[in-house]
Computed example of a mutant assay.
Amino acid sequence: MAASTNIVWHESEVTKENRQQQKGHKSAILWFTGLSGSGKSTISVALETALYTQGFHTYRLDGDNVRHGLNNNLGFSPEDRTENIRRIGEVSKLMVDAGLFTLTAFISPYRDDREQVRQLVEADEFIEIYVQASLEICEQRDTKGLYKKARLGEIKGFTGIDAPYEEPTHAEIVIDSHQLSVEESVEAIITYLKDNDYI
């Protein structure tokens, strides 16, 4: 499907800076990445609750949830994974422009895909949060039973089993979810946001 050439960007009179000022905090993408079962979704849910409770404006995008709607036509081939992250990046960029903290919990296994999202926004508007947990730990958790299915060959192209996961090389925050509790993980992220003048 060819891209349309007859389109022109239409500027708004209300700017991102106006929206941030109204909300009383900066906006940014908080990009959670890590293996399935690492704790991305659990920590992002808890973080959103903590930020909301403190009066900050947020929206959370989760991998499974997005595949029910926006990306329900995509599979798990490398090409579809890349397109999945591209779309999420574009949605996240819009939400940053709206003045929100956008929390995204996606395996997002490829460094290049995550870097493409980073390039969509200003330098300080992409905060990569690597939720680190070994494959062994993630398999022990296996809350969805996916690793078992992948080991049995019932799921093909599963990250960590027969598809790669490329660890971040310059994540702003690294959370060891085997060592830190959910509460400690949330506290570490909020401390980062305070120390770097986001809130």
Rank of each mutant, 00 (worst) to 15 (best):
153 G>N: 12
53 T>C: 05
61 L>M: 15
89 G>K: 02
78 P>K: 11
88 I>A: 14
138 C>N: 12
15 T>F: 04
101 F>T: 01
38 S>C: 03
92 S>N: 06
65 N>K: 09
125 E>T: 06
85 I>A: 04
24 G>R: 14
60 R>S: 14
72 N>P: 00
18 N>D: 15
72 N>I: 01
138 C>M: 08
43 I>M: 08
95 M>N: 06
135 L>H: 08
55 G>Y: 10
65 N>T: 10
117 V>F: 08
113 D>V: 05
146 L>S: 07
62 D>Q: 09
7 I>E: 13
106 F>S: 04
35 L>W: 00
133 A>N: 10
47 L>I: 09
59 Y>R: 12
25 H>Q: 13
54 Q>I: 01
24 G>L: 13
39 G>Q: 04
120 L>T: 01
49 T>N: 15
107 I>K: 01
123 A>R: 13
12 S>H: 10
142 D>K: 11
136 E>S: 12
93 K>A: 13
26 K>A: 12
82 T>H: 13
56 F>G: 00
13 E>V: 10
90 E>S: 09
29 I>W: 04
19 R>F: 09
30 L>S: 05
41 S>G: 13
44 S>L: 08
85 I>C: 02
113 D>E: 12
84 N>M: 06
95 M>F: 15
132 Q>A: 15
83 E>T: 13
85 I>T: 03
71 N>P: 05
106 F>V: 11
131 V>L: 08
120 L>K: 13
152 L>K: 14
57 H>L: 07
55 G>C: 10
154 E>S: 10
19 R>Q: 10
23 K>H: 14
141 R>D: 01
113 D>I: 09
18 N>L: 04
149 K>A: 11
153 G>H: 14
106 F>Q: 07
80 D>H: 09
151 R>I: 11
98 A>D: 03
47 L>D: 06
16 K>A: 06
16 K>R: 14
129 I>A: 01
126 F>P: 00
74 L>K: 00
80 D>K: 07
9 W>K: 15
9 W>D: 13
31 W>A: 02
113 D>F: 02
64 D>W: 10
76 F>E: 00
76 F>I: 05
115 E>V: 05
80 D>C: 06
135 L>G: 05
83 E>L: 13
20 Q>M: 15
86 R>V: 06
77 S>M: 08
99 G>K: 03
74 L>A: 02
43 I>G: 00
77 S>G: 05
98 A>C: 12
32 F>E: 01
143 T>S: 14
122 E>A: 15
89 G>A: 11
18 N>Y: 06
60 R>K: 15
58 T>N: 09
41 S>I: 05
71 N>H: 05
92 S>W: 00
78 P>R: 10
144 K>A: 03
85 I>K: 03
95 M>V: 02
7 I>M: 12
66 V>W: 04
144 K>P: 05
